[in-house]
Simulated scan of single mutants.
Amino acid sequence: MSRGKHLGRLLFVFSMIALLMAGCEEPAKSVLDPQGSTGEEQLTLIKISIYIMAFVFAVVMVIFIYVLIRYRQKPGDDSIPEQVEGSTKLELLWTVIPIILLAILAVPTVATTFSLAEKPSEEEEALTVKVTAHQYWWEFEYEDYGFKTAQELHIPKDKKVYLKLTSRDVIHSFWVPALGGKTDLNPGQTNTMTIDAKKVGTYEGRCAELCGAGHALMNFEVVVDEEQKFDQWVAQRQEPSSQPQTAAQERGEEVFSQNCMSCHAIDGAELERKGNKAPNLTGFGERDKIAGVLENNDENLEKWLKHPDKVKPGSYMPSFDFLNEKDMKSLKAYLQSLE
């Protein structure tokens, strides 16, 4: 087999793989199917850039084909086509045209970028949430209501949400493909963006900046509810049910206080929880995911507690594989009871 044929087959295989991967993304996770006004504005910018690139490609291909045919070598014709090197007109042409095309793209891009970073007006009654990124989890502080959550950002449908983005350690990037583009979170600095959602549902978010070994697993969810249901969720977070109801849960609370309370906080618990080094576990039993990546069930919870670094490499969560079977079962029962 010649090298050319071998290379051609490799290109074909890679093309098919890329095509299949492109089709794996669900609509609710795609920037091409926005579910909010921010995503729609950014999709417009994507379309403008595609149209410009398509126009440039078409013009180049037309010129290329014309030159290929018009100046192809003919039998018996040894003449050399007219040389245009140093042509002032042509050099001005292919300098001015790109500038014009870049201006067409730059003006709406800059305007949209600044617009989405502005705080909504008081008339819009936007919800303000402070987002703090950690290696490798997300903290959401609802400044309007006075509580914090982790890993799940709950917002009401059809309402502007003003996000204040910062980082506790390294540079991260907040990205919910269906709701808005990427915005960096830098230590000691606060960036802002506004998002909203027009459809009820759960949207996947992730860190879009390489931030360490657990970067690919630094996921979170944006849960969008009707405003009435969101208000109910807020009321529940403000008065959470964190008291153990069974003997196993009571023992689990003891295990938690002995091993976990220095890092984790639980609002509404009988014992004061001030840990803020790790995710707030209030309402843990109602979350869809453990550590943002595992389905929330007893088996995965034990897997996470025993071997967190195997689930999410680089995580600062210590291993609790030293707990005996009874204490592990009690701790799981307590955590799953948190509402």
Rank of each mutant, 00 (worst) to 15 (best):
C211V: 06
V170S: 01
D225Q: 06
S241I: 07
H215D: 15
A106F: 07
F284R: 00
V62F: 11
I290Q: 00
Q258P: 05
V293L: 04
G146H: 12
A265I: 01
A58R: 09
K157R: 07
T192S: 11
F230Y: 04
S262A: 03
E209G: 10
M328F: 01
R237Q: 14
I46T: 06
P240C: 05
A117G: 02
L301T: 09
G181P: 08
E226A: 01
S87P: 08
Q236C: 05
H172Q: 05
S87T: 06
P318A: 02
D184L: 10
A269Y: 03
W175A: 00
K326S: 10
A54R: 06
T202N: 00
E85C: 12
G201D: 02
E295T: 15
P318D: 05
K329P: 11
L11C: 13
I48T: 14
E226K: 04
A133C: 14
E299R: 12
D77R: 07
A150R: 01
D309F: 02
R3H: 07
E152Q: 13
I290H: 00
I48F: 01
A333D: 09
E254P: 13
I69C: 09
V84A: 05
K326W: 01
H264Q: 05
E325Q: 11
V234K: 10
Q42F: 03
K326G: 06
I171H: 04
F230H: 04
W137C: 01
E25S: 15
G292A: 02
D327Q: 09
V224W: 00
M61A: 15
F220M: 08
A248C: 10
P279D: 01
K329I: 07
P81E: 11
P156A: 00
L294T: 14
E221N: 12
Q258L: 00
G268P: 03
P156Q: 00
W138S: 06
I48P: 05
V224M: 06
L10G: 13
V62A: 15
H134N: 12
K329A: 10
L335I: 10
H134Y: 14
T190D: 06
R206A: 02
V31E: 10
K160E: 12
C207W: 04
T88Y: 11
A133D: 07
E123G: 13
V96D: 07
S49T: 11
W138E: 05
V84H: 13
M317D: 07
L323N: 02
Q236F: 02
N300G: 12
A248W: 00
K159F: 04
G283K: 01
D231M: 00
K312G: 08
G292K: 09
S315A: 02
